[in-house]
């Protein structure tokens, strides 16, 4: 199993992750190596084995549906790259 430069570009797009053109080949090589390592799992028969998502097989706790947090908008927006009137600013999405 190996990944091509084109595969890497596709995956990078899915992850919205900028990869410099000159590095694409390098990532393709590295990732192909890691994929080869991962395919070792194929040696093991896992038919009927229940997948394990939590080490203690715990499920999510439920809590009362009540307000426990106070509004800290100004506090949280103080570290944002760009805000205005309590809103986060991004480049124009709709013309």
């Amino acid at each position: 199993m190996s990944l091509t430069a084109n595969d890497v570009k596709k995956i990078a797009h899915l992850a919205r992750l900028g990869i410099a053109e000159q590095d694409v080949e390098h990532y393709a090589n590295d990732l192909s190596g890691v994929l080869e390592l991962m395919t070792q799992m194929g040696q093991l028969n896992t038919d009927g084995v229940a997948p394990m998502a939590h080490p203690l097989d715990q499920t999510q706790r439920l809590r009362e549906d009540s307000v426990t947090e106070s509004n800290q908008r100004n506090h949280f927006q103080a570290i944002a790259p760009q805000t205005e009137a309590g809103l986060y600013l991004v480049p124009k999405v709709i013309d």
């Binding site: 990944l3 595969d7 890497v8 995956i11 990078a12 899915l14 992850a15 919205r16 992750l17 900028g18 990869i19 410099a20 590095d23 990532y27 590295d30 990732l31 890691v34 994929l35 991004v90 480049p91």
Partner: peptide, 24 residues
Amino acid sequence: DLYTRSRGEAFGSEVKRRILMGTY
């Protein structure tokens, strides 16, 4: 471009490798 370039410029290569691997 904001998403792609912010992430591309600020993550190092090991983090990028793992994001790509996981996304795949």
